[in-house]
Amino acid sequence: MLSIDRSIIDAIIAHARRDHPDEACGVVAGPVGSDKPARHIPMDNAARSMTFYEFDSMEQLRVWREMDDLDEEPVVIYHSHTATEAYPSRTDVSFAGEPGAHYLLVSTREPESEEIRSYRIVDGVVTEEPVRIVEPTVDPHAVQSYMFGQSPTTVDYECSPGR
């Protein structure tokens, strides 16, 4: 199963929508061995194609080195299919070279909704897995500012001088 934060999924969907109808691609890095996607890295699609994606080899070297330096690994490798379902094509399977990664596919063929699915691809064998989207524990829309005389823990009804 892939567990991934809502904020990262939202960023991936935004990237896929931005590049639509071209395919978008990128990585979510996480600490080695943690299986926890933590750092979203959108990558250029060097192919700039509606039906193919390819990391730019120099950008990939830079990003992979950076992950190495931070003791990270590619936990998620994602790309979008812009006119077909979110299922790995034969091309995806031929190229899949990170046996430890979750291959996340986003389909943007429907304008109003996205299909998000995840796969393991090891030795040419595709296995779909569930995706659990972890909602934020702190509501980002919750009240972040306070009225005069209030603090997060107290309300001073008197507004007494000296406080």
């Binding site: 509606m50 490798i77 299919h81 094509s89 034969r90 031929s94 190229f95």
Partner: peptide, 9 residues
């Protein structure tokens, strides 16, 4: 290499 996509290989 990281590549793929909807197109046939």
């Amino acid at each position: 290499a990281v590549a793929g996509g909807a197109f046939g290989f």
